[in-house]
Amino acid sequence: MREEITPVRPADLIGEVAKLKIQGYRLVTLSCTEIDANCIDVLYHFDKDLGLKHLRLTAMKAEPVPSISPVYFAALLIENEIQDFFGLKFQGLVVDFQGMLYLEEEALKTPFCKFSIQTAEKTSAPSIAHAEPAEPPAAAMPGEPAPGEMDS
């Protein structure tokens, strides 16, 4: 990559991201890559005056990663997407779709992983999902943001 990549540990992530926000960086996106059966690679891309800056977080699949959506609200959809496709859990998401932004309740495998981990702990049991197939996944969404969080 042309730009430098700064490696970060999960514990320092929020601090680093908040520092970038104060410096006036815009969150471009997160990209997630599966490395092997246990490890997953998350790249955070930031932009300021058309220059890019990247943070690299190497996380374990089983352990939740702190969410940056309280700092950058825009990260909410991206983190939910990663949660759906890679099964990586994010802690402290502003709106947590519980792995049901893209996927249905019946989907228990993470489709973008070669070494899929079974995510059996979706909120509603599969039997309920079969009983009411017409119910959209949004109805099962537990956490909704407080109105104040929308302005940030």
């Binding site: 996106t29 599966e34 959809l77």
Partner: peptide, 26 residues
């Protein structure tokens, strides 16, 4: 934005596409 990761094989390891509408939903 496109993110590419290749390992010298014919198939890319990872291709990530971030489209503008995805950024414009928040």
């Amino acid at each position: 934005l496109y993110y590419f990761k290749g390992s010298g094989e014919k198939n890319l390891d990872r291709l990530r596409i971030r489209t503008p509408t995805f950024a414009n939903i928040p």
